[in-house]
Simulated scan of single mutants.
Amino acid sequence: MTIEQPLAIPDRVRPLDRVLFGDNQFFGVNHMSEERARAQAMRFQTTDAIMEVLDDAIDAGITSFMCTTHDRISEIADRVRADPKRYDGFSFLPCMPYAHKYADAVTELGMLGALRRFLPEEGALNAMLRGGKSIAKKDVAGLVTLLVDAEMAMFRGTRTPVVWLQNVVTDLLLGLGFVDAFAMFADHVRSRYDAEPGFITMNLPMLLPVLERAGIENPLVCANINKIGFRMSGGMDAYHDALEQRPFRAVAMSVFASGAIAPGEAIEWIFEQPNIESIVFGASSRRHIDDTVSLVRRYAG
């Protein structure tokens, strides 16, 4: 039994589940404790360890996995493809580009060398030509679509109803004023992958009017939203105004503020806010997963 989204969504848009499972815990990301992050990175050194937790999430009713395009995710995609019966209905919601991977490659190989490493197999020559042209013209939007094609290759044969633009790139484009890049990303994701484009940001109030200027209607946006304003750039009042007045589909992350808010209090507050479609959370234990699912069912309606 999945936790489905009850909000009224236009027919052309696929509704998200109420609960999305994240991957920070698998790759040593914890915003409050470096020690805990290191311990988690050690625990999840094998794909088997990751799959054990993913299977726990599936058994609890969660079937949407919002993940980066870390190299290890390709191994998870292989497992999902290899057992279609077990993972029937399971969806990846990839977040890209994975900035750390490209930064390391550029440092090691240079820009063109990095592009060659990550080119998609299909149409590699065309991709290289696009990549070279993009570099020559400093065309950031063209590079974004090229890298999306490269990173989507690992998900062939799986369900990917949403493709997210990572906050590092979203907020870079936002700061540089490259409004057209958002529209190009959205059009590319819809036309090439029949998926809904999503945007992850650390500054929701600033991003929404820019997406409106780009012509993206009712955008799917993921941002930190929690009771204490943890990592909510722009301030609580601006977030309240956005949730109440702006037409967009909100996915809340950092709802527990990295453990600073009690789970019941955090979930109850989140679903008291207007326009929250889904939450994304990470967990490394079956108990935490079950408790979160139970709270969402209690407070989300």
Rank of each mutant, 00 (worst) to 15 (best):
D11E: 14
R130I: 03
M51V: 14
Q5S: 15
E268T: 01
V179D: 10
R14L: 13
I3M: 03
L115M: 12
V251Q: 04
I73K: 03
Q273F: 07
N224R: 10
G131N: 10
A183I: 03
F271Q: 06
P94K: 07
F182N: 02
E217C: 02
V163A: 03
A300T: 06
T47Y: 02
T63V: 13
G157P: 05
V162L: 06
L54I: 14
G22A: 03
S91I: 00
F118I: 05
I279G: 02
V80M: 00
A114H: 01
M96Y: 04
N24H: 15
R213T: 11
A57M: 05
M236P: 08
D11N: 11
R72Q: 15
F271M: 07
R213E: 13
R36P: 00
P84G: 01
E217L: 12
M66W: 03
P161S: 03
D139Y: 05
T158P: 05
R286H: 02
F185Y: 14
E265R: 04
Q245Y: 10
A266T: 01
L119D: 01
K101N: 09
M184S: 12
F21S: 03
R249H: 03
G132H: 09
R159E: 12
L146W: 00
L109T: 10
G113W: 06
A186Q: 01
D149I: 08
R249W: 04
E4I: 11
G264A: 13
S134Y: 04
A127K: 11
Q25E: 15
R156Y: 05
L207P: 09
A183R: 14
Q273M: 14
Q245K: 14
E35M: 11
D56M: 12
T160D: 02
I267P: 01
L16W: 08
R231C: 12
D291Y: 07
S278G: 04
G61H: 07
A124H: 09
N218W: 09
F178T: 01
D17P: 06
P84L: 00
L208Q: 01
F271G: 09
T69A: 14
E34I: 07
S64W: 10
F182P: 04
L173G: 01
R12W: 09
E75V: 01
H188C: 05
L125M: 15
S64Y: 13
A136Y: 12
C95K: 15
I62M: 05
L211W: 04
F44W: 02
G301Y: 06
Y102P: 00
E151P: 00
A105R: 13
P10Y: 06
L173N: 11
Q5N: 15
